[in-house]
Design a protein around this nucleic acid. Structure first.
Length: 264
DNA sequence: GGCCAGGACCTTA
DNA sequence: TAAGGTCATGGC
């Protein structure tokens, strides 16, 4: 372990909940109390100690350069949770209480695009396996690297019918048809409609990319779990107007809690 | 062994 | 606009 380390109180931060919240696929449990995180070409061990703290095993410089932003550490999730509780919605209060340590990570945009194209009609353990095969150690393949693969190469990894989507979008980035830097400048609505122009990105995947890759926290992705919640617990309509600007965070608590209730 | 998975897309009507 | 079929693969 490195001598330098960062401590984060566990009040609004739980690495295990984050790892299992379905927004990221490169955090893995390496021992009973430690998780390994890969992002932006770096890797980090995060350990829960017995004192209600998380220990990030990295230097202060690396924390400031990479992990502070990645974990959205500047954001006060306690305040967000208070705002959600103020809506007096019993299900949401229970969801926030259960998933108290969840955060919306600020992930790499390209990685988020690729992983959420892979995620469609797929289950989380398998998504993790495929992405692990796609990566070279801690390095996620950039568009140039991914574009070198043929559809057959990608199908051999287990991508199935999604292989051609990845080939296409890798080439779109290389040709400039899709500019990641321009995407980062767009507002939520423009970013979603831009993303949906590409094969394999529909409404749900575009919203996930907006939320996890562009940190558009007003984005509210609706997958099969969210549909189930809205239909079974909210009579088919969920009003996000109550949570202007942070509906995506609400969505994350709901998703995580409902899967828990279902034993997943 | 059948159902399901953080859906998208195409064809019909 | 809405409904229904199809798409790969493997977890459970």
């Amino acid at each position: 372990m490195k001598s330098d380390a960062i401590k984060i109180p566990s009040q609004d931060f739980d690495i295990e909940q984050i790892a299992n919240s379905g927004q990221c696929f490169r955090i893995r449990k390496v021992s009973s109390d430690t998780w390994n995180v890969s992002a932006f070409g770096h890797t980090l061990n995060v350990r829960k100690n017995g004192a209600g703290e998380h220990i990030l095993e990295c230097s202060t410089d690396e924390y400031r350069e990479i992990w502070q932003d990645y974990f959205d550490a500047q954001c006060d999730y306690g305040a967000i949770k208070d705002s959600i509780r103020a809506a007096r919605d019993p299900y949401l209060i229970a969801a926030v209480d259960y998933g108290y340590g969840i955060r919306i990570l600020r992930q790499d945009l390209w990685e988020t695009i690729v992983t959420f194209i892979i995620s469609q009609q797929n289950n989380i353990p398998r998504i993790k396996r495929i992405i692990s095969k796609l990566c070279d150690g801690v390095n996620f393949p950039d568009p140039e690297t991914l574009a070198k693969y043929s559809e057959a190469d990608l199908e051999a990894i287990g991508l199935g019918y999604r292989a051609k989507y990845l080939v296409e979008i890798s080439r779109a980035v290389l040709s400039g048809e899709l500019s990641l830097s321009e995407l980062k400048k767009m507002n939520y609505a423009d970013a979603v409609s831009c993303l949906k122009q590409f094969n394999g990105i529909g409404d749900k995947v575009a919203n996930c990319i907006a939320l996890y890759g562009l940190h558009k926290t007003e984005s509210f992705p609706i997958d099969v779990w969210m549909k189930r919640i809205i239909n079974n617990r909210y009579s088919g309509h969920f009003n996000t107007d109550r949570f202007t600007g942070y509906a995506g965070v609400v969505q994350q608590y709901m998703f995580f809690y409902e899967r828990h209730l279902s034993g997943k």
